[in-house]
Computed example of a mutant assay.
Amino acid sequence: MRILIVKTSSLGDVIHNLPVVSDIRRQFPAATVDWCVEESFAAIPRLHPGVDRIIPVAIRRWRKKLFQSATWREIGACRAALRRGGYDKVIDTQGLVKSAIVARWAKAPLAGYAADAAREPLAARFYDERFSVATDLHAVVRNRQLAAVALAYPLSGEPDYGIAVAGGAFDWLPATPYVVFLTATSRDDKLWPEDNWLALGRQLYELGYCAVLPGGNSVERERANRLAAGIPGAVAAPPMSIPELASLLAGGRAAIGVDTGLTHLAVALKIPTVALYTATDPGLTGVLGSGFFRNLGGKAQLPTAAAVLAELQVALA
């Protein structure tokens, strides 16, 4: 059996889809499982040993250069690669029009959410098989349920993200045990106040842990440097790729993160994780896994540094 999963973006959504691969592998050990994903997130499914081939798309980049011939050559090459897959079933767990269109390029039986369950109901018109999955379930559970009904297997057990990464031996890391602070997110209203990060970092230092603060773009790295300067023993990490960040997380004693994909990656790696929510409800898209994890806060709620430390002390014990 040859199966294609279409989950293109974003980082957290892609991570939420990893348990689907584990489920399929348990049910069909000899199956070929490929994954179509945005090029910028391709490193995530590559972490799962159950994924055979990654077919990258670049919808975000193509949209900006739609009238360039190079863009259409890339689109043609992607369509050809998907058609060559010879898939027995394609499953679009994204539920968007753009993902449904890409999934159709494979020229294979296509399954997806019914209109009452898809994020964009119009996407359901592209599917050969449509399945209603309750919208009040966590995103991880919805992905797993869709794949299970599309491939007719029973769903059971906790989500298994299926990834394991060795802790990296970075020469800039301190010798002391460290906790990763994931301070950056896509929206300012999702940020946790810097005073809270400073207070938490200082308290952890007193307990024998240093804070390591990664940052992606220049604004995020400036924040990381600013916070590290105010926390004894803290380190602002240099620019890192997703695989390097995974190794950093894997070597940490714990992670604290705002509403961002890397916080979900920490949980997927079974690192004790406390997720902080200030503008969104974690009920449907909060961190979820099989190790130690906590979702704190919510819409118009602000977790305190004391509350975070109390949860961390449970995990670090």
Score class of each variant (00 low, 15 high):
N295P: 05
A123T: 13
D88I: 10
L182V: 10
A250V: 00
V6A: 14
H264S: 03
F292A: 14
S10G: 12
L312V: 06
A103W: 00
A307L: 05
E38C: 07
R142S: 14
V57E: 03
A139V: 15
S22I: 09
G167V: 09
G167A: 14
P272W: 03
V267S: 12
A124P: 11
A31G: 05
D116Q: 12
W105P: 04
K7L: 08
A266G: 01
L182A: 05
L265E: 08
Y277A: 02
Y209L: 12
G95T: 08
T263F: 12
R84Y: 01
T280I: 02
G257F: 02
A103R: 04
G215D: 07
G298D: 09
P238S: 14
P303W: 07
G215H: 08
V6Y: 06
T176D: 15
G286M: 08
D52E: 08
R25K: 15
A150V: 00
I44L: 15
G233M: 09
E74C: 08
W172Q: 12
A58P: 01
V21Q: 04
V179N: 07
R60Q: 10
A31F: 02
A315H: 04
P239I: 06
L312N: 14
D259N: 12
P49Y: 03
L191Y: 14
I75A: 13
A317P: 05
G86E: 08
F170Q: 02
V165L: 11
R25Q: 10
A148T: 14
G252D: 01
L207P: 00
D281N: 13
H48P: 03
R221K: 12
K89T: 14
A306D: 15
D281C: 09
H138K: 12
A108N: 09
F28T: 08
A246M: 02
P177L: 09
L200N: 03
L110M: 12
K98N: 13
P159N: 09
R144V: 00
E39T: 10
A166R: 13
W62A: 03
V37A: 06
A211W: 07
S290G: 11
R294V: 15
A228E: 03
V90D: 01
R221S: 01
R83M: 07
N17I: 02
N225W: 04
A77G: 11
C78V: 15
P29R: 10
D281R: 07
R202Q: 15
T304I: 04
V21P: 02
A166Q: 09
A211L: 10
Y277S: 03
P29H: 02
E244T: 01
W197C: 08
E129W: 04
R294D: 03
R253V: 05
V51T: 05
P232W: 07
F181C: 00
L173F: 06
A103G: 11
I75R: 06
P243D: 12
V133G: 00
G298W: 00
R84M: 12
I59H: 00
I163T: 05
A254C: 12
G85W: 01
A305Y: 04
Q301T: 00
A224F: 06
T32H: 05
W197F: 10
D136F: 04
G230E: 11
G251Y: 03
G162A: 01
D136W: 10
A123G: 09
D171Q: 12
A184N: 12
W62R: 04
H138S: 10
R61K: 08
R79C: 04
G286E: 07
K98D: 05
R53Y: 01
V90G: 03
F293Y: 15
D171V: 01
Y113T: 07
L137K: 08
F41R: 05
P193R: 06
A124D: 09
T135P: 01
